[in-house]
Simulated scan of single mutants.
Amino acid sequence: MATILGIESSCDETSAAICIDGKILSNIIANQTVHEKFGGVVPELASRAHQQNIIPTVHTAILEAKIHKNDIDAIAFTRGPGLLGSLLVGTSFAKAFALAKNIPLIEVNHMQAHILAHFIEDPKPAFPFLCLTVSGGHTQIVLVKDYFEMQLIGQTIDDAAGEAFDKSAKVLNLPYPGGPLIDKFAKLGNPDAYNFPEPQIKGFDFSFSGLKTSILYFIQQKISEQSDFLENENNLQDVCASIQKRIVSILLKKLTLAAKELKINNIAIAGGVSANSGLRKDLICLAEKENWNVFIPKFEYCTDNGAMIAIAGYHKYLKQDFASQEIAPIARWAVNHSQ
């Protein structure tokens, strides 16, 4: 029996989870509301909040799993990528815990963990599969050949899809985090009301900076013509629906291209933006058309969470792939490379 404590602290969520033999018994997430008034994550405030949250979060995870801290066989933690100050808090805690309990330390790549979240519950994807990993900081298409054999075949050349959602929301005067609010209003709007441009990028790569700029100019023009344009609920809903439709279409067009070229019909999505209802709905429709086997994680495993770190740590534990006490966090870490 292997009992793994997973620690996630890459950005603005402090999370801890307990995994026993591949089964998640607890997954506690402490969100940080301090960033709302700044319209985005402030790294220094994030690291301070992690320091305040990490001990009670771990304690709660252990209690909810109904185990004792002495039952833990190894501790897995997010080494990177992410905000260095935030990563440092989780890494330091994990190293101290492992040293105090004399148990192995397991480093986890945050982006690999998002993909491995698909192995928390059934149905699990069969290898090989393609995973569209979309979040505030990353937009990638990954060919997953095994648990830790992954090939990055497409990524954004500028901004991530999650950033496109959040920055668009800011232009619409929606509070942070704005991505979920765009999703909420989009459900009530007409996705064909406005036609935002689609970037022409060759291959499997993405680009969202031009789309963000076009949305900004569009809103500025509309407000110059009608000062209360965004105060009209119907206008706001239609704009949100149109923005969401374009971002989702960009993502799925590249995913379709990769699936056809590589002749793979096992398709997964992961990351915070995979919680978007428009992406989920359109992917399911596309899967029926393309005869894909689609794997979509539960909402609680889409955003940053300790469970995905714990399950990744469990599979590394089976390989006896442990880290040393000299290990340090890294802000940039490719999904297809070890350090």
Rank of each mutant, 00 (worst) to 15 (best):
Q112P: 01
P104C: 06
L87C: 11
F322H: 07
Y194M: 07
S277A: 14
L174D: 02
H114I: 10
L83C: 04
G137W: 03
V239G: 00
Q221E: 15
L257D: 05
R332P: 08
F93K: 00
I267F: 09
H110S: 07
A164S: 12
N336L: 11
F229Y: 15
W292T: 06
G136I: 09
L45D: 06
K222D: 09
K281N: 15
N109G: 02
K202C: 06
A61L: 03
I55R: 02
Q51I: 13
A61C: 08
Q32N: 13
I223V: 15
K95I: 01
M308P: 00
Y317D: 07
F218Y: 14
L286P: 02
N190H: 09
S15H: 03
A310Y: 03
K145R: 15
L63M: 12
P329Y: 06
Q151Y: 12
E290R: 02
D71R: 01
E288I: 05
L230F: 01
K187G: 10
K222E: 15
Q52I: 13
A49C: 05
T78D: 06
D192S: 14
P128L: 09
L318P: 02
P191L: 14
D73G: 09
K66P: 00
I215K: 03
E198L: 12
Y194W: 12
F204M: 08
K187Y: 10
L236S: 02
A334T: 12
Q52D: 12
D73F: 06
I7R: 00
I247L: 14
L83A: 03
Q237K: 15
N27I: 00
A113Q: 03
Q339G: 11
D146G: 13
E107G: 08
E290Q: 14
V142F: 05
